[in-house]
């Protein structure tokens, strides 16, 4: 084929208004061939996975800036502003302490109950908020998605980073409180770093999957609070699995299954790192393998599944 071939069908000179030009056009192969010859690409086509990852990496400044901007906007209406970043988790912990620690006496048999509870609440809040943010990552930013091109995974990932930053701030407050309780840094505290990294991967992966689900079915975000609350209550955020096992009211396999659920695994690993009286016997077997497995499974699965619908986000 040479460049003189084939005349583009649109090239018909202006014609008077008439019936739709349905049968008028040249066979489709001609246009596809013309596009190929001139190196045009299909608009809006999903890039291959490696190109997608490269695109995300080149947007890392955007991912960071979006997180910061969201954070600023979140508290821009409040008098106390950024102080709420600290107040919210602490108030949450105070409520749980009152309800579970004192009224329901969950602290019975749990030494260092307050650090135990605070770690649980902060670590859980990180995962819960990341997932909640994920359900709104696409559906809450349609203006941006419909106006500009960028790898859509930037949004859920950015929101996950934002939550990670909140977690670090909460943990800094926790460390100050630990000092007050007479707990001082030991080498074991460093174990919190890999635990939180794995938890971040896990949460980001599930958040990506939820972002895709909620982009298509917005009702997911209505359902999330119930799912998350149930998940929180079965993950030992404010009570101890050891007490549960000791009570003898549940078969061992139920307790073991609950202990192996990802939320419980990450919470207990951070407790193991930070709370001296929380010993290795309270961790499920092969706990690091479990933590890494959940993280890789969720992140790889969530990322690829999100990418597979890349071209559909924000349509219609």
């Amino acid at each position: 084929m040479t460049l003189t071939l084939p005349p583009p069908p649109t090239a018909t000179p202006a014609r008077p208004a008439g019936p739709p030009p349905a049968g008028r056009r040249a066979p489709d192969e001609d246009l596809a061939a013309l596009a190929r010859r001139h190196g045009l690409s299909v608009s809006g086509a999903r890039p291959p996975l490696t190109a997608y990852v490269r695109g995300l990496w080149s947007r890392r400044d955007f991912i960071a800036a979006f997180a910061t901007a969201r954070l600023t906007a979140q508290y821009s209406q409040a008098r106390l502003g950024q102080l709420w970043q600290l107040m919210t988790p602490l108030l949450n912990a105070a409520v749980y302490y009152l309800m579970f620690g004192i009224l329901m006496n969950a602290q019975h048999g749990v030494p260092d109950y307050l650090p135990f509870l605070l770690t649980g609440v902060f670590v859980w809040t990180f995962t819960a908020n990341t997932l909640t943010a994920g359900t709104r990552a696409i559906s809450g930013n349609l203006g941006l998605v419909r106006a500009l091109h960028f790898p859509r995974a930037s949004l859920p990932l950015s929101l996950a980073l934002l939550q990670l930053q909140q977690l670090l701030l909460s943990l800094a407050a926790l460390v100050v409180l630990l000092f007050c309780f007479g707990e001082f840094p030991t080498w074991s505290w460093l174990l919190a770093v890999p635990a939180i990294l794995l938890q971040t991967l896990f949460s980001a992966g599930v958040s990506l999957a939820l972002a895709r689900l909620a982009a298509r079915t917005p009702d997911i975000s209505q359902l999330m609070p119930f799912v998350l609350r149930t998940w929180m209550y079965v993950s030992g955020v404010m009570w101890s699995f050891s007490s549960m096992a000791a009570s003898g009211r549940f078969p061992d396999w139920v307790v073991l299954a609950l202990r192996c659920n990802p939320a419980a695994v990450y919470i207990d690993l951070v407790r193991f790192a930070l709370v001296r009286s929380f010993t290795a016997e309270q961790l499920p077997p092969h706990v690091w393998a479990l933590a890494a497995g959940w993280a890789l499974l969720a992140f790889a699965g969530g990322f690829v599944w999100f990418w597979k619908a890349e071209e559909t986000y924000g349509r219609g």
């Binding site: 246009l31 045009l40 690409s41 299909v42 608009s43 809006g44 071209e311 559909t312 924000g314 349509r315």
Partner: peptide, 11 residues
């Protein structure tokens, strides 16, 4: 590229 086509393509 912000709206998927049902059939046919935009290059």
């Amino acid at each position: 590229g912000l709206q998927q086509t049902e059939s046919g393509r935009v290059y």
